[in-house]
Amino acid sequence: HSFMVALDQSGWVDQIQIPRASKFLVDSPKLTQPLGIKSGIPKNNSSIISGVGIQGYTRQGFGALEQPIPEIGLFRPSQWLLWPEGEFAIIADNPRKGQLVIACRNVSQGQFLEVWQQGKLGLRVAVHHSGIDQVNVFTLPISLLEGFNLFSLKTETYHVDQSNRHLGVLIERITFTEQLDWEPLRERHELSILMDKHLNGIGWLSPDTLDGTPVRWMEKVGSVIIDGINTIKPLQVRVSGIMAVEKRFISDMVVKVNGNPIDGEVQEQSDKSWVFEGIIPSGRLTLNAPFVLSIESPGVGQLSSIDSRLASLLVKSVTIGAAEG
């Protein structure tokens, strides 16, 4: 069943001006064949679940794969989580610790999402954004056993589509990011996050190198998972990048912490770079708990006539440090 039907019924086709005579498929593509693994644990290898050293499988409570919709920043296949509950499994090659990062879209007011691991509630959170063109990102510290790990996602409300499916939230991706051994950030220290292969986040293209410095193209929204904050004082955020895109992508960018925008300003530099500087107020973060820093661009563009990839900002680094004064 077409994702466009759900968009149309929600009124989003007109609001985001997607042509109805579009290139999106009416029929959902076929899923891969069920894998024959002992105990019948996994069902289908899932393209929405990824991470180093793991394999992800949807089990039940998910719709078929939906086609990408670049117009709203969906560049990969996605899957509806069907109300009230969906199950997925993660198979880990070794015991691992890290963050489970969930990026989703929502079309229902008053939505809540719960994440359960092995029958225990790990996270219950309000899904504030209810526009299909807006991304909600949540993070949950988890430990994975070697082998099979079972997770459940539950939603509180739903939207009924033309096929009478009860649509909870659209899962854009579920990513396991392994815990990094960062030195805790204290009052006089600074934490620099490079755009190299060790980046702990989602919404980024593969790393490139520019003048010996690792850089990454960002999709419409790029998120970084940051841990090791050991101060309750205000923190300064600095995001630096290269002037290689439309200027409005830079001037109109928004930086958020756990879904909440922070005050800041972006300035062009004389060396054709740009820098965003903002402040995370005191009390916004939980001491010693990971948080999600998201960068949102108002649009994306094709990188070049010979590179069909769509991206927004070219980013060099993210730096977190104690605010001056």
Rank of each mutant, 00 (worst) to 15 (best):
H166D: 04
S223T: 14
L180R: 15
S22V: 08
F24I: 14
I202R: 01
V125M: 02
E66Q: 15
W182G: 02
V101G: 02
F148V: 14
D271H: 09
I202G: 02
R20V: 12
L123Q: 02
N260A: 13
W12T: 03
N200R: 15
Q60G: 03
Q109E: 09
A92N: 04
Q118C: 03
Q33A: 12
E178H: 03
M218L: 03
R238N: 09
Q118Y: 06
S240L: 06
G283Y: 11
L310Y: 11
L145C: 01
P70T: 07
M218G: 03
L150C: 12
I48K: 09
K197L: 01
D8K: 15
D27N: 13
L153F: 08
A21Q: 09
Q118F: 07
Q179V: 08
R309P: 00
V318Y: 03
I69L: 14
L185R: 06
F62V: 06
I225S: 09
V266F: 11
L100E: 02
V315F: 00
E246F: 06
R309M: 00
Q134I: 02
L167I: 04
I72F: 09
D8S: 14
G222D: 05
G203I: 08
I91P: 01
G325V: 09
F24Y: 15
N136F: 07
Q269W: 01
G147I: 06
I142Q: 01
W80H: 08
R248F: 08
L303F: 09
K247V: 07
S10E: 02
G119N: 14
S39D: 13
V224F: 08
S282N: 12
L81H: 11
I132Q: 00
S240C: 11
S130L: 00
K247I: 09
I232T: 11
I306F: 13
V221M: 13
Q118V: 07
P298E: 12
G53K: 05
L185S: 08
I69Q: 09
S192N: 04
D133A: 15
L31T: 06
S223A: 14
E172K: 08
L144Q: 05
E190G: 10
V237T: 11
S78V: 11
I250R: 08
P234Q: 11
F276Q: 12
K97E: 15
V13Y: 05
F148N: 10
I48M: 07
N149M: 13
T139W: 00
L140M: 05
G110T: 11
A322G: 15
V292N: 14
T32Y: 09
G259Q: 13
V275D: 10
V224D: 00
T209D: 13
V315E: 00
H129S: 11
L65I: 03
S273K: 15
E219K: 14
I250A: 05
G53C: 07
I306G: 01
E66W: 08
L167W: 04
L210W: 10
K154F: 02
L210H: 10
I102Y: 03
D208M: 12
G201T: 02
E66C: 15
W274S: 11
F249K: 04
K272V: 10
N164V: 06
Q267T: 10
M195P: 05
V245L: 00
Q267M: 10
A323L: 13
I174E: 03
